[in-house]
Design a protein around this nucleic acid. Structure first.
Length: 454
RNA sequence: GACCCUAUCGUCUAGCGGUUAGGACACCGCCCUUUCACGGCGGUAGCACGGGUUCGAUUCCCGUUAGGGUCGCCA
């Protein structure tokens, strides 16, 4: 309706560069991004680098790279990690360290109107003594009263004695001056919201709409702190998770697409996402479900990307695939596609392709390298030696024929052969694996196994 | 201590007064199969507790308990 003037949505993600991006922060960024895309609004990235001592460009890059990895592109914000560098958007600068004058101006205004006052070198804001009521888009009606301590001293510091403005002040001033319409943030800020609303009112403007999203807890229900493994987005980036899997999983924490849907592309998440349907209770981070989703995405990944990620994971484990022909590497990895959920499983799963000497699983050796199996394996070695070409079908036929000759099931030969060539009782399809490995390596490994069986 | 939020299988969730309480992950069987994985079939498992309101509460209200958060010259 043309006569209804609806304000265009402007949301922001305002992280502090601490050197890592918390998984909960990543989800907050995601929800902001989703809401912006869903409403056709603007997603702003603002760096809250007021704590100068601890903020480095490197720490800012962690945030920037994390968001880029997730595919969360911001419409306004920094273009690089240099706080004094250029930004995109007309509400910059997007680093708080570059907005000092704004804060000073706002504080002066408060001071001159008697809404703030100096006390022991610091500036304190005259906080409302009455309960603050507001409607949260996720939580609903909230009525925040003063706590016992706050009743003793309701006012709070907005500028420290060293002249540095504090979080509550800068956060509100920036949201106000950047025309933020919806503040989507972690529930840990719900109690602070009364302060923020009081500040907005003191500046004579309506506060933005608030949406406090539930927190992400560890699987055991405890708070996910920096120390907890898996609390940092960086670990998922390093471990080779597919970003779309992480995004998909994060979106499912506190929100549901309904209809028993679990795996869905970003475009659908954007279409279905909205604030009112976000759950009110905290969610626990279940790595097993993330791994399952990741496996689903890896299975569908296009080959080139799969190769690239695989080679990277192998290299991280000290396996240099460059020493092998490209076609060999690709053929080897093809036998692993759809078999692993995580790239970090690859070194253990497919390492035998890229190591000339392999060690066999001790448990399996006892079970498979028996005196009874020795003549069978020896016979198979003979038959394989004559195979030309050494391909899947012939290998398959040979296993079957040799097994038949001994009057046993093919599986009886499959197990020791697999163990001899991979070192593991589990792995890629045996016939494909042998073909890729090539006759020379296969014979050599079977000989090695035979030597252990005497 | 005060204030705020929350409570459905182990976990993520669907449910919005009447359902055999549904799905997914995980787990356990069976099938498929050259191992594993995938896939298929089946199974174990849940409305925290106590009061109300109602003909009827998982669903609405109150309380209890439990969990989380906030009360900084941290962000």
């Amino acid at each position: 309706m043309a006569w209804i003037k609806t304000m265009k949505v402007r949301v922001r993600f305002a992280p502090s560069p601490t050197g890592f991006l918390h998984i909960g922060g990543a989800r907050t960024a995601l929800f902001n991004g989703l809401y912006a895309r869903h409403t056709g609004g603007t997603f702003v990235l603002r760096i809250e680098d007021t704590d100068v001592a601890r903020n480095t460009q490197e720490a800012v890059n962690v945030i920037l790279n994390g968001l880029r990895w997730l595919g969360l592109d911001w419409d306004e914000g920094p273009v690089g990690s240099d706080a004094t560098g250029p930004g995109k958007g007309s509400f910059g600068p997007y680093f708080q360290s570059q907005r000092k004058e704004n804060y000073q101006r706002r504080v002066d205004a408060l001071l001159s109107r008697g809404l703030a006052y100096e006390h022991e070198g610091a500036v304190r804001f005259k906080m409302s003594r009455d309960p603050v009521r507001f409607h949260d888009l996720v939580v609903g009606e909230v009525c925040r009263e003063l706590t016992d301590r706050e009743q003793v001293e309701p006012d709070f510091v907005i500028v420290r004695s060293d002249g540095q403005p504090v979080f509550h002040l800068v956060n509100v001033v920036d949201d106000l001056e950047m025309n933020i319409t919806h503040v989507i943030r972690g529930e840990d800020h719900l109690s602070n919201t009364a302060k923020h609303i009081a500040l907005f009112r003191a500046f004579g403007v309506e506060p933005p709409k608030y949406a406090h999203i539930p927190l992400i807890l560890n699987l055991d229900g405890t708070k996910m702190s920096k120390r907890d493994s898996g609390a940092s987005l960086g670990t998922y980036m390093d471990e080779g998770y597919a970003p779309e899997a992480v995004v998909n999983y994060l979106a499912l924490l506190g929100w549901s697409p309904k209809g028993n849907r679990e795996k869905l592309p970003l475009s659908e998440i954007i279409a279905l996402f909205d604030l009112p349907q976000i759950l009110r209770h905290n969610a626990r981070f279940d790595i097993a479900k993330l791994n399952w989703l990741n496996g689903e995405y890896v299975r569908e990944m296009d080959d080139e990307r799969f190769y690239e990620q695989s080679v990277h994971a192998l290299a991280r484990a000290g396996l240099d695939t460059n020493k092998y022909p490209v076609e060999y590497v690709k053929a080897a990895l093809d036998t692993c596609k759809g078999k692993v959920k995580l790239f970090s499983e690859l070194p253990a799963y497919a390492g035998f392709y890229f190591r000339e000497e392999i060690a066999c699983d001790a448990e399996a050796v006892k079970r498979e390298f028996t005196s009874e199996n020795r003549p069978r394996l020896a016979k198979l070695r003979e038959a394989l030696a004559d195979l030309e070409p050494f391909d899947h079908d012939r290998i398959s036929g040979t296993l079957a024929a040799v097994a038949k000759g001994f009057g046993v099931k093919t599986g009886v030969l499959v197990h020791p052969t697999r163990l001899a060539c991979c070192g593991n009782p589990a792995g890629p399809s045996l016939y494909h694996l042998l073909a890729v490995l090539g006759k020379d390596r296969v014979l050599k490994r079977i000989d090695g196994a035979l030597a252990q069986m005497s």
